[in-house]
């Protein structure tokens, strides 16, 4: 129950933040970072469900006919189903995942992103920014999960 409330609170807040950042011209997939981290550290199933609902909600808020975020956000939570309990020793992987998440989220517009200079610059910046932001979000979610005791026991990060 507490994990559900935790997910709801942060999903609503991060959706607002992400949409406002997008409206300012910055593509920072905050929801993607959060769901990717929470799926590994808290609950992959709950992260999958929330990613689906809030992905669709974000598409509708921005007025898209095709809910691409509703498809791509749940995709980010899928690796957690295979990686649970296998925490890598190297933090480089977190940087790599952080850089990958913006490019996954940009898939529907990848042609524009790769063919126009502005699109490419924007994607590159998002990847660089993601590489540094994701480890930070991962650490914050891990700490919160441990403190609130909502993490999965098998990751060794979340407590009981």
């Amino acid at each position: 129950m507490f994990a559900f409330l935790y997910f709801t609170f942060w999903s609503i807040l991060l959706l607002i933040a992400e949409v406002l950042l997008r409206s300012a011209g910055l593509t920072v997939p905050l929801l993607g970072f959060f769901f990717a981290a929470a799926s590994y550290l808290i609950s992959p199933r709950m992260a999958l469900c929330f990613a689906l609902v809030f992905g669709i909600a974000m598409d509708f808020v921005l007025g898209y006919a095709v809910p691409w975020d509703g498809i791509l956000l749940p995709l980010l939570t899928l690796p957690a189903f295979f990686l649970r309990g296998k925490h890598p020793d190297s933090d480089v992987l977190e940087f790599l995942a952080g850089a990958m998440i913006p490019s996954v989220m940009a898939l529907p517009h990848i042609w524009t992103s790769l063919t126009t200079p502005e699109g490419f610059a924007s994607l590159l910046m998002a990847c660089l920014f993601g590489a540094f932001l994701f480890p930070l979000i991962f650490a914050l979610v891990a700490r919160a999960a441990a403190r609130l005791e909502i993490g999965a026991p098998d990751t060794g990060k979340g407590g009981a």
């Binding site: 997008r22 409206s23 011209g25 910055l26 921005l62 898209y64 517009h109």
Partner: peptide, 14 residues
């Protein structure tokens, strides 16, 4: 205009 998305900046807004 209250919302825009960088990927569709010139195509649509809210």
């Amino acid at each position: 205009v209250i919302l825009r998305d960088p990927s569709t900046w010139s195509e649509q807004f809210v």
